[in-house]
Design a protein around this nucleic acid. Structure first.
Length: 245
DNA sequence: TGCCATGTTAAACT
DNA sequence: GAGTTTAACATGGC
């Protein structure tokens, strides 16, 4: 569930609830449910891996972390594991195993929307500028940096590195200019492929690196290593993916 | 069956 | 106070 494209799917599914009134809010989320009662949903937003249900004067911020899930219409898990349920006249939204917080600030002014790879205002030049400012960062860590590539997660990281033939431990500062441009454009491009494949339920089938054992290009075994400061699982081909020095 | 993973925050360390 | 490490969260796939 947790990467950016999956949040877009959720957003599309919840859009019909805009303008609807919350008749009841319950669940084990440690928030003041009273603030939600009788409130109308004014807007639905996503920023990277975060999901926002905007009401009047308050916004519900949901982050699905590693195992979060949701259902729309019917409750799919026992009441005791229900984090948040919003009931409307026409149906209900259920959220499980996620972080739920209420925020008083307007999310519109709190986040850099040009940093969200799924956002129509994605700004590649700005991303490049941010990368230029972190020459000592490994590319595997940079891709997971939510201030640069908001919405990119570990699967996307592995696939983008494989597509662009970049060794995960290459430092940003040593990547040739054209290659850096490719990294930025492919990061966004793969996210939309991810979205398309996820909708068609063929995402896993299209993985070329993530969880794979053999390189699709040269048939040599892929390396599995916990790379970078983030120490996240990384799959790569030492033969095809270049480590610039 | 037990391990581990699409993630982040905050406490507990040095 | 800084930077780093660890725990917590707690489900589901293999």
């Amino acid at each position: 569930m947790p990467e950016g494209p999956s949040l877009v799917i959720l957003k599309e599914a919840v859009m019909p609830y805009i303008g609807k009134k919350i008749l009841d809010a319950r669940g084990n989320a440690r928030i003041n449910m009273d603030r939600l009662h009788q409130q109308k949903i004014m807007n639905i937003l996503t920023w990277g891996k975060q999901f926002f249900i905007c009401l009047n004067g308050v916004t519900i911020r949901i982050h699905f972390l590693m195992f979060g899930s949701y259902s729309i219409g019917e409750q799919t898990r026992p009441d005791k594991s229900l984090r948040l349920c919003l009931r409307f006249r026409s149906g209900s939204l259920y959220f499980y195993t996620c972080s739920v917080k209420l925020m008083d600030e307007d999310p519109g002014s709190l986040y850099d929307w040009e940093a969200d790879v799924m956002n129509e205002n994605w700004n590649a030049k700005k991303a490049r500028k941010k990368l230029k400012a972190m020459p000592e960062t490994m590319v595997c860590d940079a891709l997971l940096d939510q201030q640069v590539f908001s919405g990119v997660g570990n699967i996307i990281k592995n696939e983008v590195l494989y597509r662009t033939r970049l060794h995960p431990e290459t430092l940003i500062g040593s990547i040739p200019s054209r290659k850096l441009t490719l990294l930025i454009t492919e990061a966004r491009k793969y996210c939309f492929d991810f979205l398309k494949w996820k909708k068609e339920f063929v995402l896993k089938k299209n993985w070329l690196a993530h969880t794979k054992k053999i390189c699709n290009r040269c048939n040599l075994p892929l390396i599995k290593k916990y790379c970078g400061n983030t120490k996240r699982r990384t799959f790569f081909c030492e033969n095809c993916q270049v480590k610039y020095l």
